[in-house]
Design a protein around this nucleic acid. Structure first.
Lengths: 342, 342
DNA sequence: TCCTCGTCTGCAACCGCTTCCAGAATCGTA
DNA sequence: TACGATTCTGGAAGCGGTTGCAGACGAGGA
């Protein structure tokens, strides 16, 4: 492990010049730069990011706080963030923030604080006021996916609009008896999501003059088994069965489709199903969906914090940005069978 | 941002004593320690891990190199690794090593080298000899999940045994016409996996005196659509249809089940299906499987590197360790229908 | 010709902590 | 009482870089 001194010796220059040559800061003549570079290569020299960080105050790390890893939406975000960070020369430090309060407070009180990250990306964080305060108190660039979160710039699809879009699609097809299967608010996702998608659903129903009641909505886990379980209940009673179901996520929708198949209910002839996400499995199930792109949201969040880091003085508006989401039509939705309405 | 000097002043001691008091190394009287601690708390002091790393040479980071994030097996590993690392006071630096050669070499030549991690966990790495050399050259503790990998300790289930176990289960039920759907070797997984699971399949067939031919095996993508697509082919021709399919992964197996359902083939009456993983969705599909626990494998890998880091002189044997995998019986396998054999 | 300015380089002072070393204080025991 | 061992503390030297400052040099302008 050779140090900068060794390179300096070998190149016949001072440490300062080596530093300047290698980092590209300050004046260095071309010939000197080349000498330094070859010397560094020959020695296999690589700067100690610790030493460098110590004086510059920059770690070139970005912390990512995320509540779940093993789920399409979250995994995609991580992939997008990771790629974008590496492209810009930053490393990704991953913190899986579960509801486990012990590990949770440890992240806030211990890990994030030790001056190890330059910026933070918080993904669909259900955050307590205290936690928000500690985050802000770090004085570091932050961006959130999900939200809105007071005081920090966030981005996500417009959940209300997406839900409205999905519902309107069903209404436009002629459905009047539509149910919504949404997220359980105890789930570990930004709780706004669930209420907003429900809100969009209600808005669309209202705008079309369709009734909304307690029976129009059921909550479940945000995954395939969750959708399956609740659909088994909903579809079990033929007299109460809707002609269409809007699921708050594709995974839930797929569970619904599986349940319908098991019950001999044809999709879309007897039941139209629509979800949100455009999950990779949507194609296989012919699932009509509202597409969003979590990987891209990750990249955008990276842009937000990196730009803040690299253009001094610039601060993004602490505002919630809506990214677009479009309808992707497939075969799980169609006009209701004639006479199928109650 | 107060430094150690401020704490020293406030506590009326020297920097050296503050350092000792806070790190718990060396002699410090109880009363002094308390004074230092309250001073530190009052100032909200927290050590700069950079400065500390610079002198100790320890970063308290562990790098994780992983080819895929958004898949159950890999996501689970990350979860397990993350939890185990945080428990031990280490941070997780994530490197998603795709086949993209540019990003790939960047990880090897740039990121891993900058003295930013104390150890490395490599997950199912298809690694070139050059890359292996650079990894070893870092001189840092490494552990791998998957493998074996020359020169580094690795761990995984015994793929041959797991495949044999799965196949033997089918044979014990009375099946004689069994097909294997395995991974595409172009896939981004440790290629050993595919060939080993095929090997275990062949071994079991051979041991039972059953024939193996080109028609006994098909390769596909290691996911649900992959299993679905290939099963559509396999099951499309009733005369060639096996009575049982051993899929190399549960996701593939689920794709097979979905295809079978669509073709009106009853599982398990007309077709038994078994997979490997015990994926969370296995339950929903009643899928019999060989269970493995990737999160736990992640924890074990962490143990391997951390122990190496913390007990000086200790080096784990550069050996491949097999972790257990057991049969989980569900409803997707049964004896073949009488007379169903060719 | 002289001066100014931009380019290039080295010296040395840090960045914030850890740790070696030496000296002081306390303690146990001969 | 004396003395070695043990506990406790501070001074100071780094860890490996970056950067402000100043000096040297060549070129262009007055």
């Amino acid at each position: 492990m050779s140090g900068i001194e060794d390179v300096a010796l070998r190149a016949g220059v001072s440490k300062a010049t080596v530093s300047r040559a290698l980092s590209g800061r300050g004046y260095v003549s071309t010939v000197t730069r080349n000498r330094v570079e070859t010397a560094a290569n020959e020695l296999g020299y690589v700067v100690s990011s610790n030493a460098s960080s110590l004086v510059t105050g920059r770690t070139n790390n970005v912390g990512v706080i995320i509540p779940v890893i093993n789920q399409w939406f979250f995994g995609s975000i991580i992939e997008g963030v990771e790629r974008a960070l590496l492209d810009r020369g930053y490393d990704l430090m991953l913190y899986n923030l579960t509801k486990n309060t012990e590990a949770r407070s440890r992240v806030f009180e211990y890990f994030l604080v030790r001056k190890r990250v330059d910026a933070i990306i918080a993904v669909t964080l259900e955050i307590s006021p205290d936690e928000a305060t500690s985050l802000l108190a770090l004085g570091k660039p932050i961006a959130g996916i999900g939200g809105p979160l007071a005081g920090i710039p966030t981005l996500s699809i417009d959940d209300i609009a997406a839900a409205r879009l999905a519902t309107e699609h069903l209404i436009a097809l002629g459905h009047t008896n539509i149910m919504h299967v949404g997220g359980d608010s105890a789930e570990l996702m930004d709780f706004h999501v669930h209420s907003k998608r429900l809100q969009g659903f209600r808005d669309a129903l209202g705008a079309a003059g369709l009734p909304f009641s307690d029976e129009s909505y059921m909550a479940t886990h945000f995954d395939i088994p969750g959708g399956y379980a609740v659909a088994k209940q909903i579809l079990g009673d033929p007299r109460r069965r809707p002609t269409a179901i809007f699921a708050a996520a594709d995974e839930v929708a797929i569970g619904v489709i599986l349940a319908a198949r098991e019950l001999g209910i044809s999709v879309p002839d007897d039941l139209s199903v629509i979800g949100i996400d455009n999950h990779p499995l949507a194609e296989l199930f012919g699932l009509t969906s509202i597409a969003q792109n979590p990987a891209k949201q990750g990249e955008q969040a990276v842009d937000l914090v990196i730009r803040q880091l690299e253009t001094s003085g610039w601060t993004p508006p602490s505002i919630h940005t809506m990214v677009p989401a479009q309808l992707v039509m497939r075969s799980s939705t169609s006009a209701p069978r004639a006479g199928a309405q109650r």
